[in-house]
């Protein structure tokens, strides 16, 4: 969780994607460490008026990430292109499909219409954050069991929407499930199985809670 640790992680050659993202935004030739010291030296000036990249820290799936991004960057882009967390999908980039759904402070939102800087100070949860080690989260498990997907491309977004729904409503009615899932398109038309999966997930969550 501490910053040092995460900056090192960012520089870890094994996580090439993050590192590349980092370098990309500060210019090739600098090392990650140099950037880090640079950053901590730079005062967090809240109201800098500049379209150029600036420093941002985000907490994603409980882990803090230090980044340098342009103000116009959306959260979807940071997740995918900067951090290599490609479970969150782009579908329209204008709030019309739901493939990019993530949780922000437990509420489902579209990461395409969320500027990365607007996620600062909030907890972001992505599809990757629902997996515990190798074990699927209960909503993921339910989607798998009920075949609640076909091509699977809308699926991470559907699962995050379901997770958000179940975090605020432990025992949704059929109508509430349908309403709760109405912000995610599925062109494969898996809705029927998605409804079943959400019901199943609610059961599994209950079992998990009582266990």
């Amino acid at each position: 969780m501490n910053e040092d640790h995460d900056l090192k992680r960012t520089d870890d050659p094994c996580s090439r994607v993050s590192r590349r993202g980092f370098l990309e935004s500060v210019g090739v030739g600098m090392t990650g460490i140099a950037v880090a010291s640079n950053l901590s030296a730079q005062d967090a000036e809240e109201l800098t008026e500049d379209a150029e990249p600036k420093k941002l820290s985000l907490v994603i799936n409980g882990r803090k990430h230090m980044l340098i991004v342009e103000p116009r960057t959306n959260l979807l882009y940071v997740l995918r292109e900067k951090l290599g967390m490609t479970g969150t999908k782009p579908g329209c980039e204008r709030g019309e499909c739901g493939a990019c759904t993530v949780l922000i402070d437990d509420k489902s939102r579209y990461s395409c219409l969320t500027l990365a800087f607007e996620a600062d100070g909030h907890d972001v949860t992505t599809i990757e954050g629902l997996v515990h080690g190798e074990k699927l989260g209960v909503v993921q498990q339910a989607f798998l069991e009920k075949d609640a997907f076909q091509c699977g491309y809308c699926t991470p977004g559907q699962i995050m929407a379901a997770e958000g729904l179940l975090r605020s409503n432990h025992d949704p009615s059929d109508e509430e499930i349908r309403e709760g899932m109405s912000g995610n398109l599925c062109r494969c038309g898996a809705y029927q199985h998605i409804f079943k999966a959400v019901r199943r997930a609610a059961e599994l969550k209950k079992e998990e809670g009582s266990a």
């Binding site: 967390m85 479970g87 993921q140 798998l144 699962i159």
Partner: peptide
């Protein structure tokens, strides 16, 4: 299924 629901 695992890959598709886990985002991997």
């Amino acid at each position: 299924g695992y890959e598709r629901v886990s985002g991997s």
